[in-house]
């Protein structure tokens, strides 16, 4: 009981922010249920690629490799997923292709940073440029797919007021992202894999001296992370938009890194952070809908950034990244 109270006190600012956001949402939704629910549901949707991207970044950085190539991994996977679906008319094959493409991109990052011991920032940048160039080159305008991934309602839960619409009536990759937050949190902090991952990101030689292969673990995690970024890409082309556009990731891979830091390299924290970013996007639409600030559209566009700056400057304390990130590891 006492510890619960302590927790509440420790998190008081976050609780306050959360309540303020809910209150403002209801106000922005004109005190009616439908628009309010719509804003919150849109928040969840907008946060999905950010959560997935942040989880990718987190798994990589927790094991000591900075992945700034998330943007490229997402873009490439969005393209591959879209192309496969366009060719086979199967959305699920498309998603699987996006996943596989992401994993391949992760392995490529591993090749550059683990095997070749290259600079991690440069390796990530290489992936980004490579993905942007290749997808722009291969993309044929006019190619279409017939549908997006379908909305799935979770039985009677979907009929709950407000909550049902927000959480239990979504498209598949949104569910997947929620599931992944929980799974990765559990895996990071409760399993052998997680312990080893955290160890090689903090002090790789310590892990190596107890027989954990740093190289193998880093490869494994870069591939897992890449796969998750691949899902984010598939989300963009197959679930959110239903087509592919040049450079359609539009910086989301980098925002995902901010989300990861904001969430302090913790899956649950990152989820909260992604929701906040998603919310700023969702509320923008509502502003336009209500006709607020229409004379100054640039102000509406600024909302996400202002919120980001305020939150990052005001609320995030000193977050400590894994100690060994950015350093190639050699035994001798």
């Amino acid at each position: 009981m006492n510890s619960l109270l302590e927790r509440i006190i420790r998190l008081r600012w976050w609780i306050l922010v959360f309540l303020a956001i809910i209150a403002f949402t209801i106000f922005a939704g004109d005190f009616r249920q439908d628009p309010t629910t719509a804003i919150l549901a849109a928040t969840l949707r907008h946060s999905t690629p950010l959560v997935l991207g942040a989880l990718c970044g987190m798994i990589c950085e927790r094991s000591g490799v900075i992945n700034i190539g998330i943007e490229g991994q997402m873009l490439m996977s969005a393209f591959v997923g879209f192309t496969v679906t366009a060719a086979t008319s199967s959305l699920y094959l498309g998603v699987a292709a996006g996943l596989a493409c992401g994993m391949l991109m992760g392995a490529a990052l591993g090749g550059l940073t683990v095997s070749l011991q290259g600079d991690q920032i440069i390796a990530g940048t290489v992936l980004n440029i490579f993905a942007l160039g290749l997808t722009s080159f291969l993309y044929t305008p006019g190619e279409t797919i017939h549908s997006k991934t379908p909305r799935i309602s979770v039985g009677p839960l979907a009929d709950l007021p407000v909550v049902g619409k927000i959480f239990f009536s979504n498209q598949p990759l949104t569910y997947v992202s929620l599931l992944l937050v929980a799974v990765i949190w559990y895996a990071l902090f409760k399993t052998t894999w997680g312990l080893r991952t955290r160890a090689i990101g903090e002090h790789p030689s310590a892990a190596e001296t107890v027989g954990v292969s740093v190289a193998k673990m880093r490869y494994l995690n870069l591939i897992i992370g890449g796969g998750i970024a691949g899902l984010a890409g598939a989300y963009l082309s197959l679930e959110a938009v239903g087509s592919f556009e040049r450079g359609m990731t539009n910086g989301k891979g980098f925002v995902a890194l901010a989300v990861m830091i904001f969430g302090r390299w913790n899956p649950v924290g990152a989820w909260g952070a992604a929701l906040l970013f998603g919310y700023t996007n969702a509320i923008q639409t509502q502003f336009q809908f209500r006709g607020w600030l229409t004379g100054h559209p640039q102000f509406i566009g600024m909302i996400p950034f202002i919120v980001t700056i305020v939150v990052l400057a005001g609320f995030v304390g000193r977050a400590r990244p894994p100690a060994a990130i950015g350093q190639p590891y050699t035994r001798e």
Binding site: T191, L195, R196, R198, A199, E202, A207, V210, A323
Partner: peptide
């Protein structure tokens, strides 16, 4: 590993597990 606990440091690499790799 400075940020891990004593136990985590000691068992790292040779961890006692329950089912499915759970520590």
């Amino acid at each position: 590993v400075p940020v891990l606990t004593v136990t985590e440091n000691i068992v790292l690499g040779d961890e006692p597990t329950k089912k499915g790799g759970v520590l």
